[in-house]
């Protein structure tokens, strides 16, 4: 019976196409999980509405302060919300590894002839796709709420690309941590410790000029700024190339470095 041939005789794809194939199937699984979580998808719609309406109203008056960089606080905040959601989506990416490890599924993948990097990159890419979906939802909702967007349709694509790069950075950090921290609790503790300070020491919600001087100094080196500044310029002023190229390249660099770090840590920690 020709059916009963071993996998080797069956001929397997080789080289980089194998890598892409493996990465895709790891990613496919994550996306299936994502699509199966009905409650989470509903919350993804509801949450930004709440953020945008509530926060937009709460801080409306801030826009009246002379020198405020946008017409309304909502205009100012919309890219901030996208960045925030991206940060959270990315930084919790490592949880799926901890979960897989506990269920034995990670071991199953690691015993298969797929590279560790494919596991890492499949999971990272799935996070980036989810970010693209979430970012688009927020964008549409913000537009419906009257937020202006200066850069046009191509600007929207650029915006989503920036969000995806940022999510790769944080997914990389999270996956790196998950290679070292094997329990759910430890990973959550470290991640929670990182997110809030990152968020509030950035100019996501408040213009630099309105911060105390020391915080302004922190915000300038906060990696979130690399995403917020170009995103905000897409919303408020259109194609500000200097901002876009600077932020975009920096994010690309950080995302690549984190991908390499996460892959290396995976390679090392699991035989």
């Amino acid at each position: 019976m020709c059916l009963l041939t071993t996998c080797e005789e069956g001929g397997s794809p080789v080289g980089s196409s194998t890598f892409l194939h493996d990465t895709w199937w790891v990613c496919w699984r994550e996306l299936k999980h994502f699509a199966g979580q009905k409650v989470r998808i509903v919350m993804m719609l509801v949450q930004p509405v709440i953020w945008l309406t509530l926060m937009g109203n709460m801080f409306e008056r801030m826009a009246m302060v002379p020198g405020f960089p946008a017409k309304s606080y909502l205009d100012f905040m919309a890219p901030g919300i996208i960045v925030m959601v991206t940060l959270f989506g990315g930084i919790f990416g490592g949880l799926s590894v901890v979960w897989d490890r506990r269920l034995g599924f990670l071991q199953k993948m690691l015993a298969a002839p797929i590279s560790r990097s494919a596991v890492v990159m499949g999971k990272m890419f799935a996070v980036a796709v989810q970010t693209a979906v979430q970012g688009s939802i927020i964008f549409v909702l913000a537009r419906l709420l009257g937020v202006g967007f200066a850069a046009g349709p191509w600007g929207f694509l650029f915006l989503i690309a920036l969000a995806m790069l940022l999510s790769l950075v944080f997914a990389g950090i999270s996956l790196s941590l998950s290679a070292v921290l094997t329990t759910h609790e430890a990973l959550m503790a470290v991640v929670n410790f990182m997110t809030m300070p990152l968020m509030f020491s950035s100019n996501a919600m408040m213009p630099l000029d309105m911060m105390p001087r020391w915080l302004r100094a922190v915000a300038r080196v906060n990696p979130l700024s690399y995403a917020i500044n170009p995103m905000r310029s897409l919303f408020l002023s259109g194609w500000n190339w200097q901002e876009l190229a600077g932020g975009g390249l920096m994010l690309l660099l950080c995302a690549s470095v984190m991908t390499l770090v996460a892959s290396a840590l995976f390679e090392r920690s699991m035989a």
């Binding site: 996998c7 069956g10 397997s12 794809p13 194998t18 194939h21 493996d22 199937w25 496919w28 699984r29 299936k32 999980h33 199966g36 269920l103 034995g104 599924f105 071991q107 199953k108 993948m109 015993a111 298969a112 002839p113 797929i114």
Partner: peptide, 25 residues
Amino acid sequence: SQDIAVDENLTGRENLRLQAEFYHV
């Protein structure tokens, strides 16, 4: 493995498909 390592969030067929792809059938 000794742990039952199947993916609860997929169907049985999807689990098998994934395995087939991981092993390049």
